[in-house]
């Protein structure tokens, strides 16, 4: 599975306006919902907040991967956002979070695709070069190229 195949371009936010955890989740949920009509933004927000309550999806090194399942979706979809100054996302290493990948999967898709996509995004983000490219990208193309490059590796 390639992340480029599930990434919704209109749900890539180069620089978020929000400075809080809920704010950035909300902004990403709305962006994804306006690009994918079958997503109801408030419902998505609920699912994401519920998942964060279980344990923060801030995996450290400035990255968070909020995710959740929704009914009525045709396939996996992903969004991206960046907060250059970093914000407090209750990340496991306690550091501010700068890069956000949002992953939404159909409720009845079975767990495997969901897990494989999560694992793949985590794997990408454990690569410091990749994080650097995302941080330094000056436009949408920069973000997409970085992800496509990583997708090509394995």
């Amino acid at each position: 599975m390639r992340i480029m195949d599930i990434l919704v371009r209109d749900a890539v936010i180069l620089d978020v306006a929000s400075t809080t955890k809920d704010g950035v989740l909300e902004e990403m949920a709305r962006a994804l919902a306006s690009a994918v009509p079958s997503i109801e933004p408030d419902r998505l927000m609920e699912v994401l907040v519920e998942r964060e309550a279980l344990q923060s999806t801030g995996i450290g090194e400035g990255v968070a991967i909020p995710h959740g399942k929704l009914p009525g979706l045709d396939g996996l979809v992903a969004g991206f956002a960046r907060c250059r100054d970093g914000l407090d996302f209750d990340s496991i290493d306690g550091q501010p979070t700068e890069l956000f990948f949002l992953l939404v999967v159909p409720e009845h898709a079975g767990g495997r695709q969901h897990l494989k996509a999560l694992a793949r995004i985590s794997r990408f983000c454990r690569n410091g070069e990749f994080r650097k490219k995302l941080s330094e990208a000056v436009d949408l193309e920069g973000i997409l190229t970085a992800i496509a490059d990583e997708d090509g590796k394995f």
Partner: peptide, 20 residues
């Protein structure tokens, strides 16, 4: 193996995959 989804992950990432 290189093709495994676990290659390159941090151990803590498993808490993302298998919360709680």
């Amino acid at each position: 193996s290189e093709a495994s989804d676990f290659a390159g992950l941090q151990v803590s990432d498993m808490k993302l995959l298998f919360a709680s």
